[in-house]
Nucleic acid binder design. Structure first.
Lengths: 235, 235
DNA sequence: TAATACTGCGAACATCGATCGCAGTATTGG
DNA sequence: CCAATACTGCGATCGATGTTCGCAGTATTA
């Protein structure tokens, strides 16, 4: 008569790490997440296959499913692990804009450390793990003295994360998996030289050496834009 | 003796649509791209598999590779097709900020029409097709009277596209493939209620009904932020 | 007309995420 | 103390994916 057949919990964190009966697991979610992180850092996110990860851990692919319900859950764990890398120890200073910008810079730095994070963050249906929740609460604490409704603040925090991802992606060296930048540039120049795109041609000939700025200037631009954006969202 | 074994062209558009010898192809890149677009609109990007697309076109999967070198190239074609949907007919009015904001709004609207576009746009190593190049030239034409170097303008245009993607994603209804928003919200509330996240708890109880704004207000916020951002980038 | 270079495509391959079911092991209840 | 129970590890396997191979047929070229 019990018709319960749905799958109520659905997130990694709502399921117990292990059962109470059988033998002790030989690994842990933490260990597996760490190995996945190392693999992603070294060879990129696509290289994090269940098989490759299992091999790295010296086990079979099927075994991983004792710890993780699916590869997607593994990605959730990875994302939350990176969220845990952020330093939330500093208490809000009262300068909410400055504090929030600092948080965003930390977030952007995390993206630089883990180039695959951007691809993780724009999956649909993101799930907030414990570290992400800590982050959220911290950001809300920072925003306590700021104007705006709770809804506006939540939106601002979400947007902030998206912006960190966006800027990190734009700052990422094209090296990472990109096809062939010089060839692409040559193709662009060739098309522009056909005469139908005068402004593009002008821009390409003018800006021969691209004005790639150093990390400090990149951060400064990011900060400058945030300091204009955030007040406009919360006013 | 000829050691040429590399693959020089590498983009869909640098390869001829068809050879000069054999029978006339039964389909065209245009037709295939259109079918892929329809499929993606109807069932999402993951549903655009070579097999499903072939079936929709009444052919075998292998045949598609006569028109497209890989699935990735197909995605390039799709992205450029959407770029072709933008209306670039209006000549620059002299109000570069207004014109550029209009372009960004168009771009955001395209994302709303094609929810999968966001996932396309944040692939690495994007390739610019003819429509994308037209777009780029148009944006540069708009920016002609604006201050800033060519490099800054190119960066601003790129950022603009990223922002349109970002905002479109944030405005997308959680419906699209999202797991279970209410359950996630309940989980969040439960965690917050444990007492360790007071600000989160306060925000969740305060903002019971989320202040989802209408499309008009969304666009207005987007425009407001852009009008603050762009001058800051080009000054 | 013969050589050539294409087109369509069935069959197959490698790789992926995921499931099944069995053997072994620790906990539980009587 | 001992079955019943519920777990763990994992080899074998499934279904789906992108992609390649090779062949038969066809239009162009010389």
């Amino acid at each position: 008569m019990a018709e319960r057949e749905t799958t109520p919990p659905t997130t990694v964190w709502s399921r117990p790490e292990r059962g109470a009966r059988g033998p002790a697991p030989e690994r842990s979610r933490y260990e597996i997440t760490g190995a996945a992180l190392a693999l992603a850092d070294a060879e990129g996110l696509p290289a994090v296959s269940m098989r490759a990860l299992a091999q790295r851990l010296g086990t079979g692919p099927a075994s991983l499913y004792r710890y993780v319900g699916s590869r997607d859950e593994l990605l959730d764990l990875m994302a939350d692990a990176v969220a845990g890398e952020l330093d939330l120890s500093a208490a809000p200073s009262g300068d909410w804009l400055g504090d929030l910008v600092g948080l965003a810079l930390q977030s952007k730095a995390a993206h630089a450390r883990h180039p695959w994070l951007a691809d993780l963050n724009d999956r649909r249906g993101e799930v907030l793990g414990p570290h992400a929740i800590d982050y959220l609460d911290h950001a809300l604490a920072i925003l306590a003295p700021a104007p705006g409704t709770s809804g506006q603040k939540l939106e601002a925090i979400g947007l902030l994360g998206g912006l960190a991802t966006l800027f990190a992606r734009r700052e990422a060296p094209a090296s990472a998996g990109a096809g062939d930048p010089p060839a692409q540039a040559a193709h662009l120049a060739a098309v522009a030289a056909e005469g139908r795109h005068p402004h593009l041609l002008a821009a390409l000939t003018t800006a021969g050496p691209p004005p790639v700025a150093g990390p400090a200037e990149r951060d400064a631009l990011f900060e400058r834009l945030l300091r204009r954006l955030l007040p406009a969202m919360l006013g």
